[in-house]
Design a protein around this nucleic acid. Structure first.
Length: 488
RNA sequence: GGCGACGUCGCCAAGUGGUAAGGCAAGGGUCUGCAAAACCCUCACCGUGGGUUCGAGUCCCACCGUCGCCUCCA
């Protein structure tokens, strides 16, 4: 079985072959940076992080582009999101953009989400957007109005609606009509808007001073960095219409070439309302938890585990109960890794217990089979849990296990759980390497002293050390062959 | 109303034709100075009703329920 991806464009799982052998060109719609990111964003970007990590682990050279929207994203009221925030905070628009772009990267870094190769900003690509709009006008796919607005004429593009399965005639009845609009048809969408005097995010264009529509940035930047046709376009399903649909229409009309070959859309994160009904987490509804707040309560690996135990296309309900289950499940995995590494410190050289290498090979195969099947991360995690049972059994059996075998176990967790899923940390230590080393040494010293007390049957001292360490967040577990500790 | 999904053990959740992965919780054991962890055992006829098929969570129809989108949203 080779890698298969569910392609939203065709509504079916299809074998994945990149356009250029060995290379994957991938674009994911990024956030509009006018506020702190929330856990819903985390779901989308962790999901694509695993996609990128897995593709790389399979040997693909991935070029991953994810934009930052910093202009043109309007509210219903016609206000620009960035400008609204700027006037509220009495700051320059670009200060807002800078503040929240930094906040976004901070959060993603903390979540272990690898940075995209390129993070282009809409405001930095105005000429590219203007050029694309000019092409669309030249080919009569777009028109300029008296007021200096430019709209894409969806009736000129029969395939409009092919991603979201929407037909124009079905839209007419429900479409919102804005009397201020000067569109030919209500379904037409803006490529360029003339700026009102108070609109300070403005640029010169062939149609007067104005600013780009929201959708054109993704088309222009994807083309610039990935080419007119590229492999994968991702995003949250909530943007399937109109945003993704408009991207396809304007790109294919302007480039006269297919746009993205595979469309991957991530299911939304929901949060129960006061009646327990799950509602999509979103900024506009105000029912969101910021990533910063979530990270105060749960470590990044646990949040990743929580998100990755559901398939990326499914919606997920954000609840403390589910998060707690994820935490305990993750602890089970990580304890086995910790035990392996602890054993490794004193292991005898050699490959005693080499029969276990077959188990590792089996785990690897199960993991690959799962991820090959449309990035089935839950299946991958299940493979790690199966492995964990075997590892615990082996390491508790009292049989000798050589260094080579322990290293192979550690490497399996490191590669599958660490490199691909990002849920197994390299080292338990936090802080600087030097202080972490010192802390580890101090804990080991106390553990050794406690072992001496236990040997002398001085349980009062032994329990005092264990209790006080527990109060500091360091838990001890006594085993027949010694004590294992873990820090929260 | 239209479009798109979903409904699998108390909770989370895989599984697109061949007698239901995994985690959490729960109960019973083993181990332990105590504890913790670990290991073993137990724990589901897959929303309802029809249909197709030798065989269906898995395909079709209807119904019930839930969510997302319908130009603010990852």
């Amino acid at each position: 079985m080779s890698l298969h991806i569910y392609n939203v464009l065709h509504r079916e799982k299809m074998p994945f072959e990149p356009l250029y052998e060995g290379k994957v060109h991938m674009y994911v719609c990024g956030p509009t940076v006018y506020d702190h990111a929330h856990v819903g964003h985390a779901k989308t970007y962790i999901s694509f992080d695993v996609v990128v990590r897995y593709l790389r682990s399979r040997g693909y050279d991935v070029l991953y582009v994810q934009n930052l929207t910093d202009v043109g994203h309007l509210l219903d009221s016609g206000e620009d999101r960035i400008l609204k925030k700027a006037s509220q905070s009495q700051a320059l628009p670009m200060q807002i953009v800078e503040t929240y772009a930094r906040s976004y990267f901070e959060d993603m870094d903390a979540l272990g989400v690898l940075r995209p190769d390129i993070s282009p900003r809409a405001s930095g690509h105005i000429p590219e957007q203007i050029a694309m709009i000019e092409t669309l006008i030249a080919h009569s796919y777009a028109y300029v109005t008296e007021r200096g607005n430019v709209y894409f004429d969806v009736h000129r593009w029969p395939e409009y609606g092919k991603l979201s399965n929407r037909r124009l005639e079905e839209q007419e009845a429900g479409a919102r009509v804005d009397l201020r609009d000067d569109k030919r048809h209500v379904e037409d969408f803006a490529l360029w808007k003339a700026a009102e005097p108070e609109h300070i995010l403005r640029w010169d264009s062939p149609w007067g001073v104005g600013y780009p529509g929201w959708h054109i940035e993704c088309s222009a930047m994807a083309k610039k960095y990935l080419g007119v046709t590229f492999d994968i376009h991702g995003g949250g399903v909530d943007n399937i219409f109109p945003h993704n649909e408009c991207e396809i229409a304007q790109s294919e009309a302007a480039n006269d070439a297919p746009f993205a070959r595979f469309w991957m859309l991530v299911g939304s994160l929901t949060v129960p309302d006061e009646f327990g009904i799950p509602i999509k987490m979103s900024k506009s509804l105000g029912n969101f938890y910021t990533i910063k707040d979530a990270l105060k309560l749960h470590r990044a690996e646990v949040l990743r585990t929580f998100i990755l135990t559901s398939h990326y296309r499914n919606p997920v309900v954000f609840s403390e109960e589910a998060l707690d289950g994820a935490r305990r499940g993750w602890e089970r995995l990580y304890s086995a890794v910790r035990l392996t590494r602890e054993k490794l410190r004193t292991a005898a050289p050699g490959n005693a217990g080499a029969a276990f290498l077959d188990v590792l090979a089996g785990t690897r195969q199960k993991f690959i089979d799962a991820l090959d099947d449309d990035f089935n991360a839950p299946g991958g995690i299940a493979a790690l849990h199966d492995l964990t049972r075997e590892v615990n059994t082996l390491l508790n059996s009292g049989q000798p296990v050589g260094q080579a075998v322990l290293e192979a176990i550690d490497a399996t967790y490191r590669e599958l759980g660490g490199d691909v899923l990002g849920i197994i940390p390299d080292e338990a230590a936090a802080g600087s390497a030097a202080s972490a080393e010192r802390e580890t040494g101090l804990i080991r010293l106390l553990v050794d002293m406690r072992a001496e007390a236990r040997a002398a049957r001085d349980f009062a001292t032994a329990d005092r050390i264990r209790d006080q360490l527990a109060a500091l967040g360091v838990a001890l577990e006594d085993r027949a062959d010694g004590t294992v500790w873990r820090a929260n």
